[in-house]
Amino acid sequence: MNKCENMEMNKCENIFEQVQKQTPYRTPEGFFDTEEQELKRAIRRRASKRLWLRYAAAAAILLFAAVYPLMHLMHSSHANEVPLYVQTDNTQGEWTDFAEADIFLENMDW
């Protein structure tokens, strides 16, 4: 293979040998040392953030799991209470039961 000794005089037949894998790209001095530290810091920050998010999610689930049965229990305990009654305008009338939108008039004095 021919090498180009003088690019101005000869056409380069094998530029790849001439260039020898050089590129025009450069970096600031010390870039890779500082960049390595910065990359590691970025990864640790992200890992820490994800960890806290996971802890928060787990805590929320545990809290829900603990509170939900209590809420359910409190709701169930109202089932045996006396339903809400309102007094009719008849002084001798019975209380009107509003349970489930059905009104049962007991012993109404018509």
């Binding site: 690019m7 001439q18 260039v19 590129t23 025009p24 790209y25 450069r26 970096t27």
Partner: peptide, 9 residues
């Protein structure tokens, strides 16, 4: 951060 001095490169 690009070195343009070598024309062939």
């Amino acid at each position: 951060y690009t070195d343009n001095s070598d024309r062939l490169v």
